[in-house]
């Protein structure tokens, strides 16, 4: 007990830094959302909820929220399709290269977001690797636009957040007794049917938690939509930057940012709840 308290004291400096780095700007942002816009860079005195009412009354904002969420869903869906087989393989393989494979999976997490995005240019541009390959194979005649648009943003986001999903799923799959899968196969279910009937249902907690994590990260990401979208993809995060950075409308920008934050926090809590309830 005493030891625990001592450790608690050791946490104090870190907590102070966290408070200064996260809570103060957040409080500042919250305050800005409670003042009305009074021309670029200025605000009216007096606290009000007007900004939030305006946000909720404007269909444009609902569209933006819906569109951003749709993008998040798309990223989650693609990540699931790509991540499930990889997670299953990582969880079940007996190769001694497993630690190396895990390192490869988390490699994108170790690279700066800007570098990670710029790395896609030689691959996705009109004369890039993917297009050259598709044309050489005769699958397309014109190069596909895979960059500076929605496709680029989706690719960038999936690349960034897939590792979280794979790690979450692999951990859960590893805990499933392989003999349960053998029992299913013994009873006449092929490998794919066994995966659908046994592995997937037993992976549910990981699927829900992992999907919510990826969704939350995807809807709140800023750099990747900005870089990979080439300024042409408007989601909530880029809209906030536009309002604050370009129009100097702190009130609107802060309001949208807070709404996004609350939406993300809500989903994160949900994710925690699910992963706890089913673990």
């Amino acid at each position: 007990m005493a030891l625990k308290r001592a450790w608690g004291f050791l946490l104090l400096p870190a907590l102070a830094v966290l408070a200064a780095a996260f809570l103060m700007p957040l409080a500042n942002l919250g305050m800005k959302s409670l003042h009305l816009f009074a021309g670029p860079g200025r605000e009216q005195p007096g606290l009000t909820l007007e900004n939030y009412i305006a946000f909720l009354e404007d269909p444009f904002n609902w569209g933006l929220l819906g569109w951003t969420s749709l993008l998040g869903l798309l990223v989650v869906g693609i990540s699931l399709v790509l991540g499930l087989p990889v997670a299953y393989f990582l969880a079940r393989t007996k190769t001694r290269w497993r630690p190396v494979l895990f390192l490869l999976v988390i490699a994108p997490m170790l690279v700066s977001v800007v570098i990670r995005n710029l790395g896609w240019i030689p691959i996705l541009s009109e004369s890039g690797v993917v297009n050259s390959l598709l044309i050489a194979l005769g699958l397309v005649s014109q190069p596909l636009k895979l960059f500076n648009n929605l496709a680029g943003v989706v690719i960038g986001l999936v690349h960034a957040f897939l590792p979280f999903l794979i790690l979450t799923l692999a951990t859960v799959i590893q805990r499933i007794d392989p003999q349960i899968e053998e029992a299913s196969i013994n009873l006449g279910a092929g490998p794919f049917e066994t995966f659908c009937r046994v592995v997937l249902p037993l992976t549910r907690p990981g699927l829900i938690a992992g999907s919510l994590i990826v969704f939350t990260l995807a809807v709140s990401a800023y750099t990747t939509p900005a870089v990979m979208g080439g300024g042409r993809v408007l989601v909530m995060s880029t809209y906030v930057q536009q309002q604050i950075g370009t129009l100097l409308d702190y009130a609107t920008g802060a309001t949208v940012a807070i709404v996004l934050l609350v939406w993300g926090a809500f989903l994160s809590i949900l994710a925690l709840r699910f992963s706890k309830a089913e673990a």
């Binding site: 007794d177 003999q179 349960i180 053998e182 029992a183 196969i185 013994n186 009873l187 006449g188 279910a189 092929g190 490998p191 066994t194």
Partner: peptide, 14 residues
Amino acid sequence: AWRRNTGMVFQSYA
């Protein structure tokens, strides 16, 4: 294995 029609009982029940 899934085409064999054998019924297996595992030590760990599974």
